[in-house]
């Protein structure tokens, strides 16, 4: 019982960056811009959050830096894809390389001793009074660090925005048929910029989770493919927040099970178990034929 509880709690925790990354992709792709740069945005934001929080000794400033970094990276992707109409896959690939290079360099230069001023720590766990005392459910759902709660709340918020508000309607319209939206006086470019950058904020939050909530410091390539798994979750979740959340949870579950079972089967190589969540993601992703937004990846050319 104890084991099940800890595995489920850990599942929700490790699903957090995947879900946030998927929501980042959701805003971008629902408005028609392919975003395979979530990985790079996350990595860069993780690094900047760690860097700023360590040097200012303020977790808050670290969060601000991480969010801004995500938005700026997304802004870069947006300008290149929307204004200059470059192939969006190429833009995303370049941003991923850029992030790997820049973070690797800054890490060597500032985030290892003797320069490293020491970590500003991680967010404390914030058990919710009363609720966290409920047996089983309490620890699984109501005893977490803040970004986990934020992620769960965002799932509902994004569901509301996407399906029930003018913002969501316009965003979907622009991703499906930008010319139709244009003929109704909707600014296609503004809509795409805004949504890609909102996506950047979310990717930034996923990066912040890595350094300021999970590990406590930055490591080279510490995203470890989570940005791509997030994309898989988005696709398997059919570009919907609850779908993506479910897919992220599945990955989180496999990951948590893998972490907890490593000690139980010492004879199985750890790398083999670590591979399982990724393998599961691939298998699951082949189950359903995804139907992406019709205009995703196509730059809009005004007549």
């Amino acid at each position: 019982m104890e084991l099940v509880t800890t595995v489920l709690q850990l599942a929700l925790t490790t699903a957090t960056p995947i879900a946030l990354g998927a929501y980042a992709g959701l805003f971008s792709e629902r408005s028609g811009v392919v975003n395979i740069a979530i990985e790079g945005m996350m990595l860069m934001a993780a690094m900047m959050a760690s860097f700023v929080s360590a040097y200012t000794n303020s977790l808050f400033l670290g969060v601000v830096a991480g969010l801004l970094t995500g938005a700026l990276m997304a802004g870069l992707h947006a300008v290149v894809s929307i204004k200059y109409k470059t192939d969006q896959i190429i833009s995303g690939t370049v941003i991923n390389f850029l992030a790997a290079g820049v973070t690797g360099h800054l890490y060597q230069a500032y985030l290892v001793p003797p320069r490293w001023p020491g970590s500003a720590g991680t967010f404390p766990a914030m058990p919710i009074p009363v609720l966290s005392d409920i047996p089983i459910i309490g620890p699984i759902l109501f005893d977490h660090q803040p970004i986990v709660y934020i992620m769960v709340i965002l799932t509902f918020v994004i569901h509301y925005v996407l399906w029930y508000t003018p913002w969501g309607l316009r965003m979907r319209a622009v991703g499906e048929h930008p010319r139709a939206a244009d003929t109704l006086g909707i600014n296609v470019y503004f809509t795409r910029y805004a949504n890609v950058m909102i996506g950047g904020l979310l990717a930034g939050l996923a990066g912040i989770w890595l350094t300021l909530e999970w590990v406590g410091s930055f490591n080279i390539n510490m995203t470890n493919g989570r940005g791509f798994i997030a994309l898989a979750a988005l696709i398997f979740g059919r570009w919907t927040p609850f779908g993506a959340f479910g897919a992220a949870l599945l990955f989180g579950l496999a990951n948590a099970a893998q972490i907890r079972t490593q000690t139980m089967f010492p004879q199985v190589p750890a790398e083999f178990l670590q591979m399982l969540p990724y393998l599961l993601t691939i298998l699951v992703a082949t189950l359903r034929r995804p139907i992406p937004p019709a205009a995703v990846g196509q730059p809009y050319e005004k007549a």
Binding site: R172, A173, E176, R179, A180, T183
Partner: peptide, 10 residues
């Protein structure tokens, strides 16, 4: 328009 400006999935 000559080609309709409607979004099929909506």
């Amino acid at each position: 328009h000559q080609h309709f400006m409607l979004i099929p999935v909506m």
